[in-house]
């Protein structure tokens, strides 16, 4: 098996052998479930718009909670020293941690498939936006994961790592809601930086290369920055 996959397997095992994974998943399902079903019967429409519209903000808290331990804990316990003296490249370690987070997000999202199933039982559900929404969730998750991993590479302290990551993720999620006081010429540029703006295109069922490129760039930039941080630590 190749190195990143071995590391990924170990990370996923770590997640699910500790109670944190189940706590995070429960909180995620509780929040999304409550927000979704509390308005679902009031609005009386067969769609998942409410679920997806809140996802960037919920992810801004949930994903940093998943990633906060990824490097911080290794630094804190000193196991990073062992890890780096194994014959692995820093980028293999990074990739392993990133893949494991993505896998965790997928596992976390699987139970939410019950929402579209429920909705399709009571109404006529348009599958396009649902499919787009879930695809977008993965891209959004990938972007935020790389931000979280970057934050955890900066510090030994998991709380600090969580706060740094949440701040960056929330900024990207809320930037489009703070644009009203800006001149029109800047709004478009600022809007491009908004994760919510790009994610909403997905959840409308529009799969546009610009949105894909946006999330892939964020993922790449922050993973690259993490690699630089790890390199500078040596």
């Amino acid at each position: 098996m190749i190195k990143p996959l071995i590391l990924c397997k170990k990370e996923v095992k770590d997640f699910f052998f500790s109670p944190i994974a189940y706590i995070i998943i429960s909180i995620f399902l509780l929040i999304t479930g409550w927000f979704f079903f509390s308005t679902f019967f009031v609005i009386d429409q067969a769609n998942l718009r409410d679920f997806f519209s809140l996802l960037p903000i919920i992810f801004s808290f949930i994903i940093p909670a998943i990633t906060m331990k990824s490097f911080s804990e290794e630094f804190n316990m000193g196991s990073y020293e062992l890890l780096i003296t194994f014959p692995v490249k820093t980028r293999d370690v990074l990739l392993g941690k990133f893949l494991s987070t993505i896998l965790f997000i997928i596992i976390m999202l699987v139970p939410t498939l019950s929402y579209p199933i429920c909705v399709s039982l009571v109404g006529n559900l348009d599958l396009g936006p649902v499919f787009g929404g879930y695809l977008g969730s993965l891209f959004l998750g990938a972007g935020f994961s790389s931000i979280g991993i970057f934050a955890s590479s900066l510090t030994k302290n998991q709380i600090n790592s969580f706060i740094i990551a949440t701040t960056i993720c929330l900024t990207l999620s809320l930037i489009d809601k703070m644009l009203f006081f800006l001149p029109d010429s800047i709004i478009n540029i600022a809007n491009y930086f908004s994760a919510t703006y790009h994610f909403q295109n997905f959840s409308k069922g529009i799969i546009d290369s610009r949105d894909i490129i946006y999330f892939l760039s964020i993922t790449f930039i922050f993973l690259y920055a993490t690699n630089m941080v790890l390199y500078s630590k040596r």
Binding site: M77, G78, S79, E81, L82, T85
Partner: peptide, 15 residues
Amino acid sequence: KSIIGYLPESVPIYK
């Protein structure tokens, strides 16, 4: 790294 075996002082193996 593949021909060296290294154990740091605090034995930081995954607890």
